[in-house]
Write a protein that binds this DNA or RNA. Sequence first.
RNA 1: GGCCCCUUGGUCAAGCGGUUAAGACGUAGCCCUCUCAAGGCUAAAUCAUGGGUUCGAUUCCCGUAGGGGUCACCA
Length: 544
Amino acid sequence: MDYKELANLIFPNAKPISYYEEKYKPRNLKEGAVVSRFAPSPTGFVHIGGLYQALVAKLMTKKTGGVFFLRIEDTDQKREVENGVTDIVNSLKDFDMAPDEGMISDNEEVGEYGPYKQSLRKDIYESYAKYLLEMGKAYPCFCTPDEIEEIRKKQETAKIRTGYYGVWAKCRNLSIEEMANKIKNGENYIIRFKSPGREDRKIKHKDIIKGNVEFPENDQDIVIIKADGLPTYHFAHAVDDHLMRTTLVIRSDEWLSSVPLHLQLFQELGFKAPKYAHISPIMKNDNGNKRKLSKRKDPEAAVSYYKEEGIPVQAVKEYLINIANSTFENWRRANIGKSIDEFDFDINKMSVSGALFDMVKLLDIGKTVISKMSAEEVYNEAFKWSEINDKELNDMLKNKEYSLKVLGIERGSGKPRKDISKWSDVKDNIIYMYEEPKEYDFDKISGEDAKKVIAEYLNLYDENDDKDTWFNKIKDVSEKCGYAREVKEYKQNPDKWPGHVGDISTVIRVAITGRRNTPDLYEIMKVLGKEMVVKRLEKVKDNL
RNA sequence: GGCCCCUUGGUCAAGCGGUUAAGACGUAGCCCUCUCAAGGCUAAAUCAUGGGUUCGAUUCCCGUAGGGGUCACCA
């Protein structure tokens, strides 16, 4: 019996690898085009770190005229979660990052290099496993989980490296006949890679982000096909990224220490290895310690959080790009209005260490992004968000013509307002334009004095006044009530008056909006219209 | 614990042997102003640490400390 017969015994029906090599031809792309991917496992919501990786991949492929694809790594059916794939596909869509090829729904895909779901690629993995078996580069292992555990314990007490390697790899030295007999006797087994590596030798690897790294060679006989017949991550990675003709693997840096193994796998399979870019995770400050953003502890770890909070998609992307290339914000300032695709993203400039997540900065970007939008855009986005997240706001916004005016206050000028950083801010920002105030937060002038101010103002108010006339009338009221017409006058002589025109306009502002702080009162009154303004003023006057 | 990676203000970070060590967010103050949000100006605040190498180290080398990752039939 030889290796070939053993391989046939294990995988009698597997196609020769030449079939797949022929089927998935090298891509016909121009020189330098990057083929990269997002390859999550459907084990729960998409993590912001995953979106970050996907964004970098997307940027790189876009920049070079390459291909960005989505592959689902569902080789662990135990951890799989319902709607996992749908969530991933939708999350990418939400961020306007739909892949060029790969999965486009739970069970549909586009592209010539599929299937893009690993659980559907079993035949392919078997072919390549068989290929390794034929060459004696893989072998069946009959060790039970208990035996593996026992080996590990021995290694631990002896204080030596744990794992299935060298003399500890019992099954690698079984004769072909022994292996065949065990299989024929129905013993359970898995397939292991027979590592040619030696721990006392070093390999050098140049990572796109981390730079030069030196590791001991891999000498672990890792499992490549599990008891359930599916491949492990490592094996699937090598086979898939070869067959899908990936040129750049962008992934989280927790994989960095697997690079020696992966390189070895590519080598032994006769594949050309891709380039690797290991991205540092996005961290969070936890009592002075940095730790990865955690799915369990941190709501902002889930990309769905941003959608629910109504943080603009563009803000999230710009924030992420800024973490990746901090020169982005300078570019953005100099290129207002341009698409982020025009930014010359440089993956080599990405930080080697993990950045702390900064919600304050994200929200600041959100503010800027929204301030650049037209009233129409703000309306559309806020409306869309409110449909699923805020019924009350949605009802308010149903009056489109009026809402457009409300959202247009101090917008469209050279210096638009910057007070909304996320869609969930909108309601509180504009609610007094829809409902009469329930409470009045007067400042220094209240009671009878406030009543007098309002009464005087009602005498003068004319909705057709231009802004200067409007303001002069408030100054007139100030004078009548014994307050300074001008703030400057008052400041020069603070003892002469009890206050100034600012205090008077505060009374009117509060009477109309219920608040001391609002955008331009003149515009607010214009939008509200005469009827509403008078009604609100009368109401306050009568109740003071 | 073994192996690997990292360390510039509170945060993101430029920098790549000689700089007054950029910029942004945040913080504080001033200006503008009918309030607020902005905007303008200004300020405080950083090279983890000890050794080298060098005429000169934030930058190069070594050690130390601190942080992170990884050691599965999970990805």
